[in-house]
């Protein structure tokens, strides 16, 4: 067998990614996804049922608080059908951020002992959370069918074909933001305190509990510029036929996402080499 020649030095280029090396570790990537999934349901009594319980209860609370008490508009849609896609997408998005943001801290013991391409970990997080997303999506589709049989008219349309693309956007945005935060938290630990709090606030600047059409005129442009709003509205449009969707909006969201994602990747790459000296 040909022995590979390697060199370790202090070079730290901004843009030198090692894609082939990461590919060598693909088995680790798959095993990590499996680990996260298996460990999750082994640690809980109800197991995979939790995947359903959490969005259902959140939905019920939203229906009551925002729908009944607050009387927020739901764009003329049945309340559960309106809230559920928002909850599911937001859950996925926030999980991507939170878990990516603490990736150095959570794994510092491992990272300080063994070398492997660090980027495997953030990507495995995004994909293992995606399993949960799909399971919850199934729940949404079941409820959609329920309403269909009750006489609700589903307006499926061609945008449904964009679904995989929307999902990638959502994942990339969450991962990008998470990586930026995780790279900065290796130096500034107080940033991590901001994360949970910030995500909570961000939800209200996104169209999770209200439709864009019901947003106050003055803030509408700001809320609409938020790429998660664009992605979320497109999701609703694809499944329910209601929502603010156009190709231009989608392209704008794509551009923002790409910027965030690649900044995150570059920052992460810059930090990963020597972060162990500072932690």
């Amino acid at each position: 067998m040909e022995k590979k020649h390697w060199i370790i030095n202090s070079d730290n280029y901004w843009f030198k990614f090692k894609f082939t090396e990461a590919w060598e570790y693909r088995d680790l990537f798959i095993l990590l996804i499996k680990r996260d999934f298996v460990a999750f349901y082994k640690q809980t009594v109800l197991g995979p049922l939790w995947f359903f319980i959490q969005p259902i209860i959140t939905m019920v609370v939203f229906v009551f608080v925002f729908g009944k008490v607050g009387a927020f508009s739901t764009d003329g849609l049945p309340k559960p059908l309106f809230y559920l896609p928002g909850i599911i997408c937001w859950n996925y998005f926030s999980e991507c951020i939170i878990k990516n943001a603490s990736v150095f801290r959570d794994n510092s013991n491992l990272f300080s002992k063994v070398y492997f391409p660090r980027i495997i970990f953030p990507f495995s997080i995004v994909f293992s959370s995606m399993i949960r997303f799909f399971i919850q999506l199934l729940l949404f589709i079941l409820i959609l069918f329920y309403y269909y049989f009750k006489g609700f008219e589903i307006q499926l349309n061609y945008t449904l074909l964009l679904f995989p693309y929307l999902l990638i956007l959502l994942a990339a945005l969450g991962q990008g933001l998470g990586l930026i935060i995780s790279s900065l938290t290796t130096k500034y630990r107080d940033l991590s305190l901001l994360v949970n709090f910030g995500i909570q606030l961000l939800m209200f600047a996104t169209t999770v509990v209200y439709p864009l059409s019901a947003a106050p005129e003055r803030y509408k442009t700001i809320i609409a510029l938020n790429p998660i709003t664009s992605i979320l509205e497109a999701f609703r449009y694809a499944f329910l036929g209601h929502g603010d969707f156009s190709i231009i909006i989608l392209l704008r969201a794509t551009l923002i996402t790409a910027i965030v994602f690649f900044s995150g990747l570059i920052l992460f790459h810059k930090v990963e080499k020597n972060f162990i000296d500072t932690v």
Binding site: K3, K4, H5, W6, I7, I8, N9, S10, N12, F111, S112, K113, V114, Y115, K273, N274, I276, D277
Partner: peptide, 15 residues
Amino acid sequence: SKVTTPTKGIMEGYG
């Protein structure tokens, strides 16, 4: 073991 990089100098090897 590549966990951290040297400030100066080069380490090289095969395999």
